[in-house]
Structures are given as structure tokens and as C-alpha cells.
Computed example of a mutant assay.
Amino acid sequence: MSLKTELTSADLSEIRQSALGAADPLGIAAELADAADDGYLADPEDAGYALALAAEIAESRSKLDAALKYVDRAVEAYGKRDDSQAAAAHALRARILFRAGRADEAMAELEPLRSLLTQHTDAAAYLSAALAVGGRTRVAEEWLTEAVQTTLADREKGQTAEPASADDAGLLFFLLQQRHRVRHALGLQHDAHDNLAERLETKLANTTAAAAEPGDDLLFWPQAEFDKLLAQWPDLAEAYGKSWDEHRAHLERELVRLAGAGRVGLTVLPGSVAGLDKFAGDPAETKTRAGYARQLATGPGQISWPPERNAACWCGSGNKYKKCCLPRSR
């Protein structure tokens, strides 16, 4: 796999998902480092991200010297940035140090990040993961418990009741969730915080299940049908796009979003103007189009998503997915 000469943030995210399955992941790690060195990144601010990714790849192949070299450069590239990406790079460095048998240095790297548990939603995950590698799962439980108690105390000061949902809980949900997992790994009995974590996870699962019903956002209008659709109902351009390219881009982005939210078995629902016209209700109304989508979801003709990168694109253009709709999500 040879990386292209200019990498975007989206490209780096795609590499993160595919690099470990490549024939030469260590070669990709070296190319990522070269891209950061030689200015082959679309945004120079992504240098830390590229180098941290190279470190993860090297770590996964137990090349700890190379991994440490890459992650040191990643930390240097992030400089004084105090965002979550920079903090995650420090946690990655600690993880590699643990693997290299340098536990004291690893803990010194993690201690300053402890306060981030009440600031960054993903801090609970990367800190507990690093501590687990170092055999400090009990420490992770202590840090997470303290962060949960601090966050709950802040809610009580504002006289806020128990969170009604994961969204309402915000950062607290991620702390409770990660603490619950860590305590399960330690074999500890449930306490009140574990019970709250389970209640919120159940509410989230119920909400996700309710949202899983297909809506009109997964209706796909093949090019000829799209032209007919806008000719008959011009106002639907607001829902589906003013052009077929815009329509396909909207669908691809929505499918990527749903996949990122954990949805599996995603399919595109090809519609027809005749079918929508026959369906009971006013096509201008969202509920009518959503009902039509649910009808299509129970019948044949659905298009599985995503196709393989080199397979024909789902939109029927005849082009390869990687050259057609895949880039539209970016």
C-alpha cells in the first residue's frame, strides 16, 4: 500500500481502520512518518495524528523502539496543545512505556492527564486502557471513581436530578460506562454508580433501537428517478439535494454517520416516483416518505452498504466505490 502524496484528516482516519490488515503495516507506519516530515499532509496540524498512528501500528507489531520513536515525535508535534488528541498521544506514550518495562516513566506521563477525566469525553477510555496495559486496573478504577464523584457533585450543586438519558448525562455517561467496565474486569460487586451506568445504557439502547427504523434519509433515488422526482415535486430538493451528486453525497454521509454510531447491516432503499406517488399520503410530508421507506425496507431490492473499495459503487454509476461515492462522505 503506497500512500498518496497529500493526506487529509479523513485519509488518516481511513488508514487507522485499514492499516493493520495491510500486507506491510510497518511500511505504512514509515510512510506516515515521512509524510509528516516532508509536508505531505493537507493540514500540517495533522502531523501529531499521523505520527501517533505510526506509533500505534509499530506497537501492534511489538516494535517498541520504533513505536516510542514515533510517539515521542507525535508528542513533540502536538507541542503545547491541550486538546484530546494531544492528551491521547501522551497516554499512548505511557502505554508503550509500560510495554517496554518502564512503568515509573509511564505513570509520570499519565498523572498530569488525570484531571482530563472531568474535561474530555474520551479521556476515560484512553487513560484506563493505558493503565490496564501496565497492570494498574485498580488505579484506573480509583481515578474513574473520583472523577464520577466530582462530576456528580457538580451536578448536585446545580440541583440537577439523575440524568434522564446518555445525552443528558454528557461526559458523566462516558465516565460511568468506562468505570462499569473496569469494575467488571476487576470482579467487583455493583454499587450505586454501576447501577446508574446500567440504567443509562439501557435507555441509550432503547433510544438507538427506536431510531433504527429507516426514515426518508435512507431513500435512494437512482438518477432517472431523481430527475423525475424533482420535476414532479421541486420542493423535495431541500430534502434530497438539488442535484444527483448532492443526493448521493448526502446519503453517503448519513450512512457513514450511522455506521459510526454502531449501526450494522445498513442498506440503501431505492425508490421510484411511481411507488412514492401510490403510497398513501402527501409526498411533501416527511412522515409519508418515511412510511414509504419502511415499506421498501421490508421488501426486495435493497442495496447493501458499504461495498468493497474496488467493487462497483452502490449508486449504480458503474464506477468503483473508491472513485465514486466513498470520497463524497468527506
Rank of each mutant, 00 (worst) to 15 (best):
A140V: 11
G187Y: 04
A164F: 11
Q302W: 07
K69E: 14
L41Y: 10
R199W: 08
G215E: 02
R289H: 04
L251H: 03
A58Y: 02
P307M: 00
I28Y: 06
K203C: 02
H250I: 00
E14A: 09
A132Q: 08
Q159I: 03
L186I: 08
D104H: 10
E308Y: 09
E156H: 07
A87T: 02
S243K: 04
R102L: 14
R61Q: 12
V139A: 11
N310V: 04
R155K: 08
A197V: 11
K242N: 10
D34E: 14
E285W: 06
A205P: 00
A19V: 14
L255N: 00
R81S: 07
W314E: 10
R289T: 08
A89E: 01
A147N: 04
I57S: 03
A42R: 15
P214N: 01
Q223P: 02
L53M: 13
L176W: 06
F279A: 06
I15G: 11
E146K: 04
A30W: 12
H180S: 12
E308M: 09
A103L: 10
L152I: 05
A19R: 03
A67W: 05
F173D: 10
Y240D: 09
A231M: 04
E254N: 13
R253D: 11
E6A: 06
L258I: 01
E246G: 00
A33R: 12
D168P: 07
N206T: 00
L117D: 06
A35Y: 02
Q232V: 05
E198G: 03
L200D: 09
D277R: 06
T208W: 08
G187I: 09
E105G: 02
D65M: 02
T151L: 09
R81H: 12
E308D: 14
P112M: 00
R73S: 15
D11E: 12
D191M: 11
R330G: 14
A140Y: 07
D282L: 01
W244E: 12
A185Q: 12
R73H: 07
P270T: 00
E142W: 03
R257P: 10
Q295T: 14
A52R: 15
G281N: 13
D72R: 09
A66H: 12
L144N: 09
G271H: 00
A192C: 02
A47L: 05
Y70A: 11
I303S: 12
A108F: 01
